[in-house]
Amino acid sequence: MSDTLPALKPPSHRVERRAILLWTLYALIWGISVIGVLVALYVFLPATRPWIQPFLWILPPIYLLYLTRVPYWRYRVHRWEITDEAVYALSGWIVREWRIVPISRIQSIDVKKGPLQSRLRLATLKISTAAASEGGISIIGLDADVAERCSDRLTDLTQTVPGDAT
């Protein structure tokens, strides 16, 4: 049933395995803060209990499932590649998204490292275009060195490929 997928080659590289840990940590931080707030409300504001109780029944199992499955699922989906013509990436889990940005249309290249990412020696390569927030590509979970090298290579390529100022 290959015709249920867009007729695109999967991008050649996977992201780092450490990205699973990164996504798990993100999920932990989010989950603990959201469920923490709900529990705090439940304990300290008895008036809200009838409203919060159903959430406290429903959310934790969903969250546990998310925490244990989704980081792996993401890792299996996420892929990236830089061809001579374009930056190409696949991301997502329930909703997958293939994104292609021609190198001639790149406006800026960023390498982002948050505190968690730098502990794990990971980085996000962010390519932006004139389509503002709607366009561009973010490749999460690259090795920090690889991200730096990609950024250098793309900077060189963008200087050789003449862009048209859109």
């Binding site: 249920t4 867009p6 994104r99 940005v101 275009t129």
Partner: peptide
Amino acid sequence: IGWGVRQSLLQRRLGLATLRVQTAA
């Protein structure tokens, strides 16, 4: 200036996808 192809699980079951055409205009 860029392409995106988006596909949810339901779209994949139905053999569909949403093409997103990016432009500066």
